[in-house]
Design a binder for these strands. Structure first.
Lengths: 341, 341
DNA sequence: CTGAAAGCGCTTACAG
DNA sequence: CTGAAAGCGCTTACAG
């Protein structure tokens, strides 16, 4: 009943344990006949190398630590939507396909040295970090530690660390270009705060698109706001009080777009007839508002997949010149955008 | 830079490695002075026992394998709601608090013997299994394997295996009792199919409540249906065509209740004035329908917590007479129930 | 191509 | 209470 060990296999195949190891790990030079004999013996007793022992002797495992940093309840939902959950699912799927276990280490929320030691002592091959907060002491700890790390949606780089993110700039440009093509010229931006990466980058994309179209940015049309639905609602109310000439709005997120939509409706403005609107993220909620929201889709599956591949192939694989993974976005045209009238 | 080992600590403290191990693991009898000396030495070099080595020698780790079985995309959402995600979050939180790592093993979706061997070779202390399907060969494999296992929402028991589930019967009884107290007598049940545990148990609770109130179950008021929104919609349409005397309906899930609600609205029936309605689960959607849905709340956090505690304290802890964990439900009264008129 | 030996870092009977 | 020794199951230079 006890698990078969390499000793058992060696005995059956009539070879040494060293040979068993070589035959099964594949690489080393070994005679075809011996390999077959060992393989058959292994199969006959259902032998599978002890992962823990391998880990100890190799000083490294086929395990990736997954850390999720955030406060608040249900940190992985973005505006009530399981946004990061999709990313995680993709991470799990890709790790599985590559033969890597995923480890959610416990007791890592104490002191920093212990955090890093905890990862080291577990012999993880690398770490994946999904952080909803952009500042966390563990981010720096991980960057300076000699552990291959990929951050998701956190801009952090080091000799063994890089990150994956959506192409926020390109996405915002797609949104703005779409409106420009529809003939809009006075396009307002309900932008996130400049302190967040997404906020900054998306505003930048908006500005770039206008500049590329030969338009100056009208400061009165740029409205920073929090990322909440209510924040965007309030910002839109103010905007509409001050400016009646707006024909289109880009919001920094779908959730914010829902707030914008409500402000427009309350004002009696029809969407998209009077005002066009574009969101960002493509969360499920887009389908449930009326009209369904035109938005910029973040490819969550590609983010998760990209994070794992970058970690395994580049960082763990020892590739030089590691660059961040920037995942392209996609314009999804639904009901909130139309030609200027 | 290399991690300090017990050898380093032993040298600094002037003792043997055996003593270091004893001093740090706490339990063994050791002199206070030695313990202090060892602790200080350990602290000075930032020593932390190598988890992998411990795992190898103890033939067991502080790790719980977490398996999630399902097909379909986003298996952990229940009707578009991150139902199981909440459960997982609670599992993670509790495991962390207890000092257990969580492991999502890779390559476990192949053959059964390899699946079990994979867990054994990783020296996991136990396994937690969230299965959205009630039949899966791995369920049986895990039950018969000598690995402590707790299933979530799957009724499976063995010498080292048990499960956690909501009190479906009690919950359905709460729902029905609530309507009875409001004076309803002709209460219909849009029940899930009898092939699912939730469907069966919830129907049973409904029947028990009626029986307890001295009422016979009217077969014409019991409508089995699929668990989808559309299924429940269709079943309700049929029900209303055949029976005009219904004053209240219990649905086997919130998602189904939304379908019921639509059928009622289309029929021109006002809720709760003409017909009262109770759901089951308490997913977020309850708040977004009009009127907000009265329902039976499943305590997702308690389910996750209960699963981890049962696994660690009972199964791993070697307690005899393991019993399933049945988590109480709670009636949440919102806008869809009122007195019979 | 193959084996004997050492070692990964720890714990645990066994003596004392 | 403490240490020397053996061993968890594997891999990997080192010889041959």
């Amino acid at each position: 009943m006890a698990m078969a060990t390499s000793k058992d296999v060696a005995r059956i195949a009539g070879v040494s344990r060293a040979t068993v190891s070589r035959a099964l790990s594949g690489s080393s030079r070994i005679s075809g006949a011996t390999r077959e004999r060992v393989t058959a013996a292994a199969q006959s007793v259902g032998y599978e190398p002890n992962v823990v022992a391998q880990s100890l002797v190799r000083q490294r495992s086929h395990t990736i630590a997954l850390s999720i940093f955030s406060d608040g309840k249900n940190p992985l939902l973005l505006g009530g939507e399981p946004f990061y959950f999709d990313v995680l699912e993709s991470i799990q799927h890709e790790a599985d396909a590559r033969g890597y276990d995923l480890l959610l280490p416990s007791r890592i929320y104490t002191d920093l040295p212990a955090y890093v030691r905890g990862l080291t002592t577990r012999h993880v091959a690398g770490a994946l970090m999904v952080a909803l907060r952009t500042t966390d002491p563990r981010i720096d700890a991980l960057v300076s530690a000699a552990i291959p790390t990929v951050f998701v949606d956190v801009v952090a780089e080091g000799p063994q660390a890089t990150y994956v993110t959506s192409d926020n700039i390109g996405g915002a440009r797609q949104a703005t270009d779409h409106l420009l093509h529809l003939g809009h010229r006075r396009i307002a931006a309900i932008s996130g705060y400049a302190t967040s990466l997404a906020g900054t980058e998306r505003l930048l994309g908006y500005q770039q698109a206008l500049a590329h179209a030969g338009l100056a940015v009208d400061p009165g049309l740029v409205r920073p706001s929090g990322f909440g639905m209510e924040d965007a609602y309030a910002a839109t109310v103010t905007l509409l009080n001050e400016r009646r000439d707006v024909t289109a709005i880009v919001a920094a997120s779908d959730l914010m777009a829902v707030g914008v939509l409500r402000a427009l409706h309350e004002r009696g403005l029809r969407v998209p007839h009077d005002v066009s609107l574009v969101g960002f993220d493509d969360i499920d909620l887009c389908l449930y508002v009326d009209p369904p929201l035109t938005t910029i889709r973040q490819d969550r599956a590609a983010m998760g997949r990209g994070a794992v591949r970058c970690l395994i192939d580049n960082l763990i694989g020892g590739v030089h010149a590691i660059t961040p993974v920037v995942v392209p976005t996609q314009l999804v045209i639904r009901g909130t955008t139309g030609p200027v009238t």
